[in-house]
Design a protein around this nucleic acid. Structure first.
Lengths: 145, 145
DNA sequence: CTTGACCTTCCCATGATGGGAAGCCCCATA
DNA sequence: TATGGGGCTTCCCATCATGGGAAGGTCAAG
């Protein structure tokens, strides 16, 4: 199995497979005589594991921990559960922050006529000395999805 | 006012103020005889505007649009409202994705004993041929906050 | 005049991903 | 058998907003 087939079968792009290998998240793939990476069905399973963990919002570092537990047949399920619940906590915290943003924006937008006039409470608030936006010391917005 | 004072007064770090200037988001600051950047209360107001827009999750590109509208006294409030509601849409979409992740993780965690035994539905699902995780073609998780 | 806190520019790192170039390899078809 | 197109390799660069740090100049208080 070449990298392209492994990518199609796992849902992980070829680019990312090489990246995961570079960073040590996955072991180096085997190589054909001509230098092509080769993948077994087992390797594809590993990639699918990673893909699904990414889909649940885990970062690479956490995925490395999950993989270690996956491979450790003497693991305690409590350790896995802990990682999962930590992730839930982190997600919920971010959701709350974003919901606060939505609430503020909605309030401001509701107060804005949205017509051809220039008067706009949204800009007024952003430019005001004091604002309804709660101070968020050290908080940066998310970057993207 | 030096950059440090402007940073403290606006809630934007000195690093970021220089960055915003580099990228053209804000006009170049005045300079003292010795080359220090100088800021007026008006400049600080501009920085606070940016800070608040960031706190509402706007990216730099959108903030540039907001600033343009802020400066344009003949703007239509509809344009501003549109930007705000777009942002609400984007936030809501991301919130939904994260809520789906939370739901999946919670379901898996609920099914996991969380004791010293190795059996764990969470890892089982991640490593399975088929999973309860809905396929998310092309979707990447957020990075962080 | 010294000391420490500030400022300057410049480079590097993050996390996860894509884009693209230059060059080699493999297979099928003409 | 030759050729073409697609896949593979490595390497570098970009993203987005932010921080860290080095090397060196400046300012103000003691």
């Amino acid at each position: 199995m070449n990298i392209g087939e492994a990518a199609a079968a796992s849902g992980v792009s070829a680019k990312m497979i090489r990246y995961y290998e570079d960073t040590g998240l996955i072991p180096p793939a085997g190589r054909s005589a001509s230098g092509y990476r080769t993948y077994s069905p087992r390797d594809v399973q590993l990639l699918r594991f990673i893909r699904r963990a990414r889909d649940l919002g885990f970062g690479m570092e956490k995925i490395a921990e999950l993989l270690a537990l996956w491979r450790d047949r003497s693991r305690a399920s409590a350790d896995v559960k802990h990682l999962a619940l930590d992730q839930v906590q982190g997600l919920k915290a971010r959701i709350l922050e974003m919901e606060a943003m939505v609430a503020t924006l909605q309030t401001l937008a509701d107060a804005c006529a949205g017509d051809h006039h220039p008067d706009c409470p949204i800009l007024a608030d952003l430019g005001a000395d004091a604002s309804i936006i709660p101070a968020q010391p050290g908080k940066r917005p998310f970057t993207h999805l």
